[in-house]
């Protein structure tokens, strides 16, 4: 990567968010603008993928709501993310948890990481 562009990207990276790992269950507070009002919307789910690097980094958060799977791809450094809270650290062996899409109920659970 070009050092000049690296510098521009670095300035935009957010440092106030906690470290998010694959398999973690997280709560994301999203800023939603409705008309001229702004409110915070909560989205809780499992991190099943991380993509990109630096300012281009994004995470895919999956949750099952009323039996329907919902996945949101969130740019990690976007100002639209108000805050992130890690609810549970997951113990997984894969970098992408796409297999969760084919599973429901008990088999879609992720072990909790012990000792961290």
């Amino acid at each position: 990567m070009n050092p000049v562009i690296d510098k521009i990207n670095k300035e935009q990276e957010r440092t106030d968010l906690p470290e998010v790992c694959i398999g973690d269950t997280i709560k994301v507070n999203l800023r939603i603008v409705e008309g001229d009002k702004e409110r915070i919307q909560l989205f809780q789910g499992t991190v099943i993928a991380r993509d990109g690097s630096s300012v281009n980094e994004s995470i895919t958060v999956r949750r099952v709501s009323y039996g329907i799977g919902i996945e949101r791809v969130l740019p990690l450094h976007s100002p639209k993310i108000d805050s992130i809270e890690v609810v549970n650290r997951g113990d997984v062996r894969r970098a992408k948890l796409y297999y969760l899409r084919d599973r429901v109920g008990k088999s879609a659970r992720i072990k909790t990481k012990i000792g961290k």
Binding site: V4, I5, I8, N9, R31, P75, S78, P79
Partner: peptide, 21 residues
């Protein structure tokens, strides 16, 4: 021309930019 990246607007919008020396 140095290269391309993007900036975030306050609204969260991504603005594609070309960096030019």
């Amino acid at each position: 021309k140095v290269g391309m990246t993007h900036l975030y607007a306050e609204s969260g919008e991504q603005i594609p930019v070309t960096v030019v020396e």
